[in-house]
């Protein structure tokens, strides 16, 4: 196991070291100590390595991650795993705004709550939040799955495209063009798989599914007030 201490090593060197790991590296286990809310920790990784961050991070932890598994043993600041391509990001605590923003793939597993704009503009990522999410989550979400074991805040799924949203608790309000949809067999199967992979203590049947009404897909004068 390799240890990188952010109180002794600067961010550039920590990231450069992790980014230099190739697919066939033998050094697959890494620990980052003393993150103390630093920004851009473990961004742009591109190898199947495992990185454990011992504490809380600032903005954009694990940004644009590919292949790596990044485990934050604390809370994560704004934009954790933003634009993630693949791999896994686990946050033991809470996540701030924009968790998984524009993410294209991989799995973001948030054990605590996520605040506003969780999954904003997501493009294929899977996000599982064990707690609740804040307002404007999944705004303009295009693809992928957002699973929330707790409650959702205001304007869930506003201007939604084809992302699928599953919420177990209450939804404070739905955004423009977001509606509740029938939970079909394939959705239950998908949920079962995501819940299992994230170790979530919940049953697929307890969730409701929300998706796009697709009324904003092509401009129609009768929906102009929803823009």
């Amino acid at each position: 196991m390799q240890v990188l201490d952010l109180s002794k090593t600067d961010l550039r060197e920590v990231n450069a070291t992790l980014q230099a790991q190739r697919a066939d590296t033998n050094q697959t286990e890494w620990v980052i100590e003393n993150p103390r809310g630093s920004h851009a920790v473990a961004v742009g990784l591109d190898a199947p390595i495992s990185v454990t961050v011992k504490g809380s991070t600032g903005y954009y932890c694990a940004g644009m991650n590919k292949l790596a598994t990044i485990h934050v043993e604390g809370s994560a600041g704004p934009g954790v795993a933003e634009n993630m391509m693949s791999g896994t990001v686990i946050v033991e605590g809470d996540a701030s705004q924009y968790a998984g923003a524009t993410g294209r793939g991989g799995l973001l597993n948030i054990k605590g709550n996520a605040s506003s704009r969780c999954g904003i503009s997501m493009k294929g990522i899977d996000i599982v939040v064990h707690g609740s999410i804040g307002h404007m989550s999944a705004f303009m979400a295009q693809k992928g799955n957002l699973v929330v074991l707790g409650d959702a805040g205001d304007a869930l799924g506003d201007s939604l495209y084809e992302a699928r949203l599953f919420v177990r608790g209450t939804v404070k309000s739905l955004g423009a063009d977001c509606i509740e949809k029938e939970m079909r067999h394939e959705h239950l199967a998908l949920l079962a798989e995501l819940l299992e992979r994230t170790g979530a203590d919940a049953k697929p049947e307890e969730f409701r599914r929300y998706g796009s009404a697709r009324k904003l897909y092509n401009f129609n004068i009768d929906h102009a007030d929803a823009y």
Partner: peptide, 8 residues
Amino acid sequence: LELREITG
């Protein structure tokens, strides 16, 4: 900062 860190 993030974009610079991703692109060295």
